[in-house]
Amino acid sequence: MKESKKCLEILKNLCGYIDNELTGKCCEEIEAHLRECPECRGELKKMESILSLCKKSRESLTKTEKKRLKENIFNSIEKE
């Protein structure tokens, strides 16, 4: 990927852009650059995919584990 100075600046702000933490002016600047730069659009897509993977990777307790957890907690509390 060829990175211009502008691209590097945009990449540093991509996380904030994805997290909706940037001001209107800064967002507009990034969006204008993204329209013109396929490399940065690609980076944005990759980052969004990673965040989506993180959300999808959620772990969960089974019903038995949850039941046992509560039993263990309250047994321990009762003992003390």
Binding site: R58, E59, S60, L61, K66, L69, K70, I73
Partner: peptide, 11 residues
Amino acid sequence: IVEEYSERLYN
């Protein structure tokens, strides 16, 4: 509280 947060904390 345990019921509400155990799953999220476990994750």
